[in-house]
């Protein structure tokens, strides 16, 4: 029921999702065109690169990286920075996403169409508080990762003389699971914290995260379960992409276009899923409002939904 409602409001926000995907695509063009130009220039008049159309060729690739690696390096660096830029943009857009989703709840077929101006207007006020939530969850997840690594080191040192390789790997995997699971709970709680801050116009990021965590743990099956389901759906989509992509050799422009389309469909689906996760959180919170103490901020208004 909750998932169905969440899906409905996500679907009704198709225009916004399309726009968000567009942002992702436009940002990625900062890589696409320079990469195309660089690779074309470095390939020059050589026939060897045509072999890459039929699949990966280690000799062509390694010869290329040896002579032209310095030209390709900056592209990878740009890619890394674009990731960070997009991360910041995602924080910025979250306010607008929640605003759009909230405005669609309960409107049925008469859902208001996506208006960019309203969307962007709603992004600004929430940016800093959402950025604080993101910084908190990221810091905590990194902390858990460090603990996970320490646990792995302890396991290796303690089991050096008594565990065989398989037992060691299983123990290390269990150790990572021990910290990995809480990390995903934290990420889930981060989304709920943003929803709480949005709905109650709150300013206190730490407080919101604490309440969100309590809420997620109290409603584990619903809140974390649906979150896990959607994350799992994302993983399955990824796997599906590899299965579909494998037989496509992209040996000509038509197939390259097909591959590109497939890739963009996956990205679009991931954007959809990201919005869907927020929609689900919004729906769960709306349904279980009574459980939550008010997360009071400087204003006392409560956003609809």
């Amino acid at each position: 029921m909750i998932l169905k409602s969440a899906f409905q409001i996500t679907r009704r926000s198709f225009g916004m999702i399309l726009w968000l995907y567009g942002i992702n695509l436009v940002v990625s063009l900062l890589i696409l065109f320079p990469a195309y130009a660089t690779l074309k220039t470095e390939a020059g008049h050589s026939l060897e690169f045509v072999k890459l159309l039929d699949g990966f060729d280690a000799t062509v690739f390694t010869d290329f990286m040896h002579t032209s690696g310095k030209a390709v390096g900056p592209l990878l660096s740009v890619g890394r920075w674009l990731g960070l830029l997009y991360g910041v943009l995602s924080v910025f857009f979250t306010g607008g996403i929640l605003f759009q989703l909230s405005s669609v709840i309960g409107t049925g077929a008469k859902a208001p169409s996506f208006r960019l101006s309203s969307f962007l207007q709603s992004c600004g006020p929430y940016f800093w508080r959402f950025l604080r939530v993101s910084a908190l969850t990221t810091g905590l997840v990194i902390g858990l990762a460090v603990i996970g690594i320490l646990i792995a080191v302890v396991i290796v040192l303690a089991g050096e003389d008594s565990l065989n390789e398989q037992q060691m790997l299983v123990a290390i995997a269990a150790g990572f699971l021990l910290v990995g699971l809480p990390a995903t709970v934290l990420l889930c709680a981060g989304d709920y914290a943003r929803v709480l801050l949005f709905r109650h116009d709150g300013q206190r990021a730490i407080h919101a995260l604490k309440e969100a965590l309590r809420f997620v743990l109290r409603n584990g099956k619903t809140a974390y379960g649906l979150y896990g389901l959607l994350m799992g759906a994302g993983a399955i989509l990824f796997g599906l992409y590899f299965v579909i992509e494998a037989p496509i050799q992209a040996s000509g422009w038509l197939l390259i276009g097909l591959l590109f389309t497939l890739q963009q469909l996956l990205i679009f689906a991931r954007v959809w899923l990201k919005v869907g996760i927020l929609a689900t959180a919004l729906t769960v919170v709306a349904n279980r409002e009574a459980e939550l103490p008010a997360v009071m901020g400087e204003g006392s208004s409560t956003n609809p939904g």
Binding site: N24, S28, I31, L32, F49, L52, G79, Y86, W253, V271
Partner: peptide, 19 residues
């Protein structure tokens, strides 16, 4: 075509990294 194919692949992975 090879430049287009691998530029598209690189872009795809950057998009994933962003997501």
């Amino acid at each position: 075509a090879p430049a287009a194919k691998y530029a598209a692949k690189l872009t795809f992975w950057v998009q994933n990294w962003m997501q």
